[in-house]
Design a protein around this nucleic acid. Sequence first.
RNA 1: CGGGAUGUAGCGCAGCUUGGUAGCGCACUUGCUUCGGGAGCAAGGGGUCGCAGGUUCAAAUCCUGUCAUCCCGACCA
Length: 568
Amino acid sequence: MRTSQMLIPTLREVPADAEIESHKLLLRAGMITKLVSGIYSFLPLGYRILMKIEQIIREEMARSEAQELVMSALRPAEGYQSSGRWDVFGPEMFKLKDRHGRDFCLGPTHEEIFAEVAKSTIKSYKSLPMILYQIQTKYRDERRPRFGLMRSREFVMKDAYSFGKDANDLDISYKSMYDAYCRIFDRQGLDYMVVDADTGAMGGSGSQEFMVKSYAGEDVIAYCEKCGYAANSEKAECLLDNEDDIISSESLYKPMEKISTPGMKTVEEATQFLNCDAKDLVKTLLYKADDKIVAALVRGDRELNETKLRNYLGCTELQMADAETVSEITGADVGFAGPVGLDIDLILDLEVAHMKNFVVGANETGYHLINVNINRDFKASAIRDIRTIAEGDICPQCRGSIKVDRGIEVGHIFKLGTKYSEAAGCAYIDENGKEQYMVMGSYGIGVTRLVAAIVEQNNDENGIVWPLSVAPYHVAVVPINTAEGPQMDTAQRIYNELLDAGVEAILDDRKERPGVRFKDLDLIGIPIRITVGRKVSDDIVEYKCRKTGKVVELSSTQAIEKVKKQIL
RNA sequence: CGGGAUGUAGCGCAGCUUGGUAGCGCACUUGCUUCGGGAGCAAGGGGUCGCAGGUUCAAAUCCUGUCAUCCCGACCA
C-alpha cells in the first residue's frame, strides 16, 4: 500500500488524557481513537496489529488441538443467573432488556455459556477431553477504566474452555494451554512471568497468571530468584520471619497501660508520639463483610491483604467500614480502634499472633493502649495469614528473599472443576453408562491488552518498536525525493519485488519532507526501512533497522534479499 | 463509589482574577521558495467557549445545577 492513500493520523503532540507510554504512543501513532471512556476504535494500522496477535494465538491454539468457534456477545440472563454470577458481577455487567422486558447482558466472560454448549453437544466420554475457544469482544462496565487499552470496558479476549472426564483430563488440558500460552507470548517477543494467582470470583482449585513485566502494570508480583517461586501478591503466602522466636513467654508480659495520644490517628503519628516503631504497633482495621462487621489486625508497618481476608471470610462484598460505623462499633473516632474490649470477630495476622507488649488503639478518642498481649488482654477469633507480602520477605518455598515487581496480566488460566458444569447440568456418559459432570478449565488472553503490553515493553524516545511478528507492516520503502524519477522508479521496483516475495511492505510516497516521513515511520514502529536517495544512480540504497538504528548501504538487490532473509 | 483536577478549532494550550462578543502553536487548504530527521514566507478555512438555567444593557469570564474526561484510592478474570 502507498502511504499517500493510507489512514495514518499521527499526532505530534501527546493527547492530554493519556498517562502511560502505550496509551500515548498508540494514540500518537494513529492506531486507536477513543470513543468514550474505556472504549476505543482500532484504525487501520492498529487493527492490523490486533489481527497479527490474533493470528499467532490461532496458530498456537490449533497446535494444542483447541477448536475455534464464535458466539454472540449479547447474552440472555439465564446462563449467568443459574451460576449466580448475574449478581456476583453486579453493576460490572452491561445489562439491558429487549422489547419484551427480558433481561440480557453483554458477555463479560463465558464459562457458563460454554458449559451450556458442551452440555447440548458433547454426550460421551469418547469425545473428552476437548478444548473450545473463541476470540471475541467482551464487555465489562469497569468502575474505573484507565490507561487506554490496559483496562477498557470493551476489549477483545481469547477465551478457551476445556472439558474433561476427570481431574486427570483437566491436568492434561491445563498443561497443553499453559504450553500454548508460552509459545504465544514468546512469539510476541514479550518478557513475561507465570505466577500463582487467586481464583477470585471465578472459583476453582488453582490458577496461574501470565504477567508481562512493566512498571505500568496494575498487578504486583512477588518472586524469588533463588527457587523460581512467583505469585501474585494477592496470593503470595507470608511466612513468619523467625519461627524460633515465637515461643511466647508470659513472664515477659508488661502491665497494660492507657496513654493519652491526642489527635494521633495514623500509625506514623502514634508511633512518633509514643517513640516506638511501626513494628511495635498493631493496626485494627474494621471491615464490612457482606452484612457483618469484623476487625482485621496486622502489624503497623504491614498492608492488609483484602483478597486473603475475603477468602477466609467467604464473603462476596468486603469493604472498609465507614467512619460512622467505626465510631459506632468502637466508641471512638477513626484511628483509635483496638482489639481490647471489642465485641466483634477479631482476625489476627499470623505475625500479630506472635507479638508481645504491643500498641493498639484504646477504642477511645485520643488514647492508645501499650503493652497489650493476646489472650491476657483479648482473644482472637482466628489467626490467619492476612497480610500482603513485601520486598525482602521470606520466600514461602525456599525461605530465600522475595522481590516485588509490577506486571500486566495478559493471560490467566484456571482449573475450574465442576462449578459451572454443575450449574449448567453439563454432564457426559462415562464408560459405565453413568452420568458425570464434566471437569472444566478456563483460559483467557487479553488480546487488546496485549497490544498495550507489547508497546509498553517495546518503545523508545522515537516511538513504538514493534517486534517483527506483530508489526503492522514489515518494511517501509522511502524515496527521499518523490519528484525524482530514478528514486521513485527504484523505490517502486523494490516495493513491488518485496510484495511479490510475500513481504508486507508499504511505499512512503507522501509529498512530505523526508524528516517528517522518517519521524512518522519511527513513531508507528515499522521494523525495517529502505531509503532510496541520491546514491540511487549507483544502485545504492539504505537499509535501516528500527530497533537498533543501524544503517547499512546495499545494492537494491542485496537489500531485497536481506529483507527476505529477515522475514521469510 | 470517596478524594482531586480539567472541559475554549482535529491536537496542545492562553484568555476567566478585574464581564465588552475569542486568540496562539501544531495540523488542514492554496501559492512560491525549499527538500537526508517534524522547513520558510504569504494568503486562507475551521469554534453555539461541555450542556442547562440564572445575574447583567452585555457572560468563555460571575452564580447554581448538570454532564463528560483524566489522576489517586477503593474495586476487578
